Computed example of a mutant assay.
Amino acid sequence: MNDNVHLRLPTQASGPAPEAVGMAVILIHGRTQSSADMFALAERIGLADVPYIAIEAAGNSWYPDKFMAPLENNQPYLDFALELLEALVVELEARGIPRERIVLLGFSQGACLACEYLYRHPQRWGGLIAFTGGLIGPPETQWSAQGDQLADMSILISNGATDPWVPLSRSRETADVFRQMGARVTEHIYPPREHGVIDDEIAQARALLRP
């Protein structure tokens, strides 16, 4: 990818260069958040030798409506966000990092975007960590989940039992879809809690990144 495309990507990075260790973790923030919030999560994970690259949404939101609203309510912003994520992945591939060595890590709206991106680009990735997220679409959405496109891929999906923004039912639907696509999915459901990431979720993420 040429330098002009690189300059258009609103990214920030921490840790070693991806080329130095042969992998990367893409951080995707939630609504009203920024890359700084995701780097704070990365610091809590505590793996200093892991390269993190965070993308940032214009206006701190990837799409305007709720993630379970009719899809047209979130267009063209949703498509643009997915294209931005794909552009970063393509850039990493050009730097020698294959998709099976790229982990997607998102929180809330960012976790929903990560789930949707994975579903639309089904192949073996380095992993998916979805803190309080799920696939995007209205309640009646049906997802085709045939084949084993995600075979041997590790996925962590976590949520609180009564999260106000991401219904537990959608997180569970998402886990089922990814299992049907061959992934090894771990679900962690916690008692009612604030809309955030607790220490046990951090520990689960650390275990996925450093099995």
Rank of each mutant, 00 (worst) to 15 (best):
R99L: 04
E93W: 10
P138S: 07
G126E: 11
E83S: 12
M153F: 03
E86V: 09
T141L: 03
L88C: 06
A145T: 03
L105V: 03
G127E: 04
I189C: 13
W143D: 01
A151M: 06
G147M: 04
F131R: 01
Q180V: 00
L105C: 15
R170A: 02
S169F: 07
Y117E: 00
W125H: 05
L209H: 00
I189Q: 11
E173F: 08
D199W: 06
A111E: 07
D152K: 09
G147P: 13
L168F: 02
G126H: 11
F178M: 07
R124T: 13
I102D: 03
E194W: 01
I97S: 11
G134W: 08
T174V: 07
Y190S: 07
A205H: 01
L118Y: 05
R101L: 00
P164G: 09
V197P: 09
P139T: 11
I155Y: 06
Q109H: 12
R184S: 10
R95T: 10
Q142T: 14
M181C: 13
G160L: 04
L168D: 01
E83D: 13
F131V: 05
F131D: 03
R101T: 00
G106V: 02
V103Q: 07
T186A: 11
R170W: 08
P122E: 00
L209D: 00
I136Y: 04
A183V: 03
D152Q: 14
L92N: 07
L92I: 02
I157H: 00
V90N: 10
Q123L: 14
S158Q: 14
L128T: 12
G196N: 15
H188G: 08
G110W: 04
L85W: 05
E86Q: 15
T132Q: 06
